[in-house]
Amino acid sequence: MKKSQIFTRGLIKENAVLVLMIGLCPALAVSGTVRDAFGMGLAATFVLLFSNIIISIMRKRIPNEVRIPIFILIISTFVTIIDYFMQAFQPSLYRALGVFVPLIVVNCMILGRAEAYASKNSVINSALDGLGVGLGFTLALTVMGAIREILGNGTFLGMAIFGEGFKNAPVIFMILPPGAFLVIGVMKALINKYVKKETQ
């Protein structure tokens, strides 16, 4: 497989959230605003990229029987790094994401890539795969965050984009939990209708 294909496969064709339907918890929980969604996406991408690299470097030394606990330990090391990094440099984003930063460790997308890809492939390919899947996750979250923030608050990254009239009557439930379910439901339906048609 060509290097570019490894990268774009995770980005679009096998997008974790919108196509494979994994990593849903953070995707729905923090996509209320573009900033939170993008921050969460980048944090997960960081963890995915570096855990893929380390696991790929160590793949020949990890005994097969205890590989899952070792993967989890490697992943949780990077989760702790990003946890403390965000706490120090992005405190308001950290507060907004709350418990979902340490919970990156149980995101099945990351353990899934470690098990299915990084433990069997070269370092460069694993890094590309991690970057592709992570940025695909970021992309899906940011699109959801944009839809929810624009409809629910009338803003994009905090800037008002509609006139004064919208301020009094935004679609408030879009930034509340039900909006997340409805947005991803409609997005998935559109993907089923227009994109995945030929595969079914």
Partner: peptide, 13 residues
């Protein structure tokens, strides 16, 4: 195209 996941999400919403 709505069957399966999409309708589940909307019902959950």
């Amino acid at each position: 195209s709505i069957k399966g996941y999409p309708i589940s999400f909307i019902a959950a919403g």
